[in-house]
Simulated scan of single mutants.
Amino acid sequence: MNSAPSPELTTSQVKLMRMLRLIAVYTTVVTLIRFSKILSNFSTLVDLKGYEEIVETIILLTVALLLSIVSTIILCKRNGSNLHPDHAQKALDRVTNAVIVHISTRLLSDLLVHSEVIPSSNAYFTVLGLIWAVFWILACCSLAKAKGYHPIWGVVGIFNLSSTLLLSLLPDRRLNSADS
């Protein structure tokens, strides 16, 4: 038996861990769907894009899939007790906002393309992507701070949802040893 008392978890720590697990599962499912689409259309895609480009895409998707699966497993084993409680709330707010912006921009983009209001190659998508990237980088900065790292680590947010998984793989540590 462990004689050390377990630290009391705050609501923000619990919710942030749930959100990170949800993002890891979401990333796994999306990557699996992309992977299956490429494999099911492999011969057609090779004719259109070339063998090397398709193999490169498959390798990148394999790495992303492994990262998301490992992250999901690690996040399920962690409870968030080492996340700084004050910074966890800010990280939760920013991650939630970034997810909402991501979902709403994707839905809006799909709606506008399918209703033929804008073409799928419009610069509008670049603007939406940049807005989402700013939200996501801020969320990753807050997540890094909640995990006890310098916020500059949040710059990995530029690499999309996988960046959150990379930050999640870093071990949690307290900002101050007095908090332990």
Rank of each mutant, 00 (worst) to 15 (best):
I73C: 02
Y51F: 07
I69F: 14
T72N: 06
R78K: 15
I59P: 04
S43I: 07
I54V: 12
L32C: 13
I54S: 01
L67F: 07
L67K: 08
S81V: 00
L61R: 01
I59D: 06
L67Y: 06
L67W: 05
C76R: 11
D86P: 02
I33F: 00
K49P: 03
F35D: 07
F42W: 09
T44A: 14
V14M: 02
R21D: 10
L75V: 09
E52W: 00
L16E: 05
L60F: 02
V30E: 08
T28G: 15
E56T: 10
K15N: 13
N41P: 07
L39I: 14
I33K: 00
G80R: 01
H87R: 14
F35C: 08
D86A: 08
G80T: 06
R34H: 08
K37A: 10
L32Y: 00
G80V: 05
Q13L: 01
I58S: 09
V70G: 05
T57A: 12
I74A: 10
R78P: 13
V46M: 10
V63C: 13
I33D: 01
L83G: 06
L22Y: 00
L32H: 00
S40E: 11
I74P: 02
D47N: 14
T31P: 13
E56F: 03
N41Y: 12
N79W: 06
L39Y: 10
S81N: 04
M17T: 08
E53H: 02
L83W: 05
T27N: 13
T28W: 09
K15D: 09
G50I: 12
